[in-house]
Each structure stands twice: as structure tokens, then as C-alpha cells.
Nucleic acid binder design. Structure first.
Lengths: 196, 196
DNA sequence: TAGTAACTTGCACCGGGTGCAACATTCTGC
DNA sequence: GCAGAATGTTGCACCCGGTGCAAGTTACTA
């Protein structure tokens, strides 16, 4: 009963995918910052203006749907048993990010490298994590035994930020090892060091 | 024996200070993003081009000398006893940031608020912390009992990132309370929650 | 098939930032 | 005090990312 996508929808998806593929290729070849939107548009066979019709910014090409991912993590977190402690709960919630990455592992690695090399992207990634922080803090605050407040308790925010920092370190280590390192293990070891 | 600053140096400092003061006033009145460099330059009585002679970017007006601060923290960290554990050592190192903030407390609060409200500044602040991370990680790695490596151990990086997250939460709480909350106490409580 | 909704494109514009060249100022050695 | 080097200021043209608008084209729908 799912209606087939219209021609418009199909072409839109196809163009979207081709812009992404073209851009990633250019990024790999020349770097993110050295590649201009005009070059991407020209290589993809569309006008510069149309590019901004498909992507709100150049960063959007490599940032993925951070809002949806953040919501997924939050949902996974709230779905954990109510009496589970903060650390195991957030660890389990982060696991929903791993399966989403399978499939084209090479592409994920390339993306991680682009993220790593462009300072503006690193900053953007961190800003995304700030949003996640606000999303996850309330649940964590409860799990830490802290009373609910309208604005998140700094302790809960610090806790979530620390967990995200461990997650970042794990992803970085994974990318640096060409995908051979186990990010979950790195994450667990980082947490262990924090609590030692 | 310190030679008096030349006329050039004095005028340079004076102009620098006046641009900063003018810009902060405009930022407080209209917000960081809504204030253009042209407006700042006009209000300060210099040309747009000269502005970029004094500041490499608009952000530089409110970011302070992050490199120097990071180096100060690192120096304070390496100056701690060699056998001190990681947590107390980094806590003590962060304390060098507090005395630097006294004097014009109102100005610091205004700065913190500007940082908080402009997304680009938040991202830039986080990027600055990434630099600090690289600076502090080697020492922390040793204090965590991890073997020295050419590229920092992810556990050490996660540790430093977590400490910086607690620092951020403390500063945020301090700013949110109009300077009444004690950031050191907030920091300690955040760390305690992490390790519980 | 006619009309409407959505897409594409060019254009003009904004704001941050840079390289360059001309001019003005201060500093330095004589 | 003066000549010349060093430093500072400014305008100009330009790059890049991003947006609003209007005109033309394409696909959907009644």
C-alpha cells in the first residue's frame, strides 16, 4: 500500500545522490575546504543555485542527518530500563549508532577522514554534539539520581559531554586504524579510565 | 630595564582596545551575528581593511588568546608533581584559568553570554578545546599509567575531553547564575558524578 | 487538456576574509 | 635635522558561502 514514488521524487533522490557522490569524490581528491560549491555544482551538472536547493550548506553534504541520529539515540536511551544506571544506559544507547554505519564501510571511513581533516567540520561536529547533549541530559539527570530541573543540571550535562567525548575518541581511533580497531572496546576502555 | 613602548606600539594597543570595547558594546546591543564588521569598523573610526589588520577574524574579538591560555594550562599541568594522579593534576591545572578572570567580572560575564548565544562561537570554543586536548593529552597519558605513543592514546584524549566538558559545564553554570555559582565547586561535583 | 504546483536557473546582493598597491606615518642611522 | 627604511592605513578588486526574487520550464492533477 505504499504508493510508488513519483517521477519528481525519483529524480530528486537521484540528483541528491549524485551530488553527494560527486562531492565526496572531489573532497577526497582536493580536500573539503579546497573544493568550492561551484566546482561541485559544475561537476554534478547543475547550477550553483540548485545546489543550495538540495543542500542548505556545503557542510550538509558530509554531516548526515544529525537531528535524526540524535533523536534515535535519545529514543534508545529512554527505552532502557528505568532503573538502569547512567553509564550502562548511555553505552547501550550509543550502540544504535553502530549498525547504522555498516554497509559501505569504506565510505564511512572516507567521511570520518574528511571530518577529521577539516577544522570547520570538526567544530560543526562538536556543535552537533552540543545539541545531543541537551537531548540526552534530562534522562541522564534522572538516572544520576539528580532532581529534575527546567534547565539541565550542569552535572548531567558534563556527564553526557564526557560520554560523547569518549564516543568521539572511539570513532577517531576507529578511523585512524582504518576500521580495524573496535570502537565499542575503545569506548569501554575510555570510560574505565575515566572512572579509575 | 624594560624599554618603554614606542609610539607605534602605544597607538596600536590603544586602537586595539578601542575596537574591542566598541565591538563588545555593539555585540551586547545587537548580538554577535547581527553585528557586521563594517559596523564595528565604522563605529571605531577605522576602515574595514584596517580592522582585519588588528583582528584576523570577527571571532578573534571575543575568543581571547586561546593559544596562550592553552599553553598556560599545559605548563601548569606539567608543573604538577610527577606522581600526582590525572584527576587532581588536571583540576589543579585548570585553576590557573580562574585568577585570569578576575578584575572586570561584568565583562567576563558579558563575554560568556555572547559565547553562549552565538552558535558559531560555541563551535569555535569547542574547536579551541580540541587544540587544548592535543596539548594536555601527553601529560595525562603518562599520569594514567599508559605507555607513551607518538599519537595520543584515545583513552587519554577522552579523559582530557571529559575534563574540558566538566570545565565547560562549570563555566556555563557560573554564567547562568550571573556569577554567583562557584565554578570550582560545580567542576568538582561534575567529576564526582562521572566517577560514581 | 488546462491549470497549478514544484523545480531550475540566473541575477543581484550580503557578509566574512584576503592580496595588492598607493599613500602616510614613525622610526633609525648618519 | 634629514634621508631612507620599516610599519601602518586605506581603497580596490576579488573569492567564497549563502539567500531572496522573479522568470521560465517541467511534472502532476482535475
Amino acid at each position: 500500500m505504499t504508493k510508488p514514488p513519483s517521477l519528481r521524487e525519483r529524480t530528486r533522490r537521484a540528483v541528491h545522490a549524485e551530488i553527494t557522490a560527486t562531492a565526496l569524490r572531489l573532497f577526497r581528491e582536493h580536500g573539503f575546504e579546497a573544493t568550492t560549491v561551484d566546482q561541485i555544482a559544475a561537476a554534478a551538472g547543475i547550477s550553483r543555485r540548485s545546489f543550495f536547493h538540495y543542500f542548505a550548506s556545503k557542510e550538509d553534504l558530509v554531516m548526515g542527518d544529525t537531528v535524526a541520529l540524535g533523536a534515535a539515540v535519545r529514543d534508545a536511551l529512554t527505552a532502557r530500563p528505568a532503573d538502569e544506571a547512567a553509564w550502562p544506559a548511555i553505552r547501550a544507547a550509543f550502540l544504535v549508532l553502530v549498525p547504522a554505519d555498516d554497509g559501505d564501510l569504506a565510505e564511512q571511513l572516507a567521511l570520518a577522514r574528511i571530518h577529521h581533516d577539516a577544522p570547520s567540520l570538526r567544530a560543526s561536529l562538536l556543535e552537533k554534539h552540543l545539541r545531543w547533549q541537551e537531548l540526552l541530559a534530562p534522562d541522564i539527570q534522572r538516572r544520576l539520581g539528580l532532581p529534575a530541573t527546567d534547565t539541565p543540571d550542569p552535572r548531567a550535562r558534563a556527564f553526557v559531554a564526557a560520554a560523547l567525548a569518549a564516543l568521539d575518541a572511539a570513532v577517531d581511533a576507529w578511523a585512524a586504524s582504518n576500521g580495524t580497531a573496535d570502537p565499542v572496546q575503545v569506548f569501554d576502555e575510555a570510560i574505565a579510565v575515566l572512572r579509575a
